[in-house]
Amino acid sequence: MSKKTMRRPVNLCVLIVCTVLLWAVPAASAAAEDVEGQLELTYEHVVNVERQIEATLTVDWKDEGTLPVENVEIHFFIDAEAGEQQLGTAVTDEEGRAQVTMEANDPIGMNEEGLSTFTVRAEHPDLGSLKETIEVKDGTLDISFDEEEHAIHATFMQLTPDGTEPVAFASVQFYVLRYFGDIGFHGDFTMTGDDGVVIEEFPKGYPGDEEGNVEMRVQVDGHDSFGTISLVVDVPWGVVVEEGGYDRALWAGRDAAPWWLIIAANSLLAAGWGTIAYVLLLVVRIRRAEPEARADDKEADGTA
């Protein structure tokens, strides 16, 4: 074999390697460019219960849009008087979400303008260092009952270092809590007035507990400055329902069936299934009839 022919495979290999490199290097760098992590923060305050800061980590993937990033440690911080203070660490779930929860009475480090600052940080081998900050005002909701008008008065106030201030032109929603989903009973434009108050008539006839209490949630949803604020209270204006006496539920109120219905329906069923059982018995007897017949035949033949 000559040198010239020996060199051909070597040349071919070099050509293939170069082609692969020419294709792979830009492709790899393009793939790296495509990955851009995004952290989003939301703040939710359930009055008298808890405050929750939730971070959502996603990436923009060219072909597939925005995708959640799972299993990433997110560190949550709050700006306190003594500097940045860690609130906790959480790992993102399959939807890219991680949360930390604070007690309702925990201090949230408000500055002179009444703003609290929350920061989250994360490290990811492909996405690098990520950081996001959110500034929120601290708000609260309070309600009172207007017995005469059968209405709820909800008051939305901002908590400031100097006390409280009413929040005007905020949309407030009212819900009655149910097992499978909450029923909203607010109008389309339920806004607070200058005094931070909104009045909503409470519908009559909602089934309540044994004392007639109905659970209601008043909520300011996703406010630009306050995030989401909600307050859950018992309203004593529901219909009193004894335990197990609420017939609308599929699993309740069997006792309410009239006896004649139970007897008639069960008799019909028993007759139907009784006939089925009898037919099955006949089928079994068909199976057993064969040896008997043979015995009869033998008897007839005199061989038994």
């Binding site: 089928v283 068909i286 199976r287 064969e290 017949a293 043979r294």
Partner: peptide
């Protein structure tokens, strides 16, 4: 087939 042998007894039961 339940040991069916086409006997008169089986026919009657069926």
């Amino acid at each position: 087939a339940l040991n069916w042998q086409d006997t008169p007894r089986q026919k009657a039961l069926l």
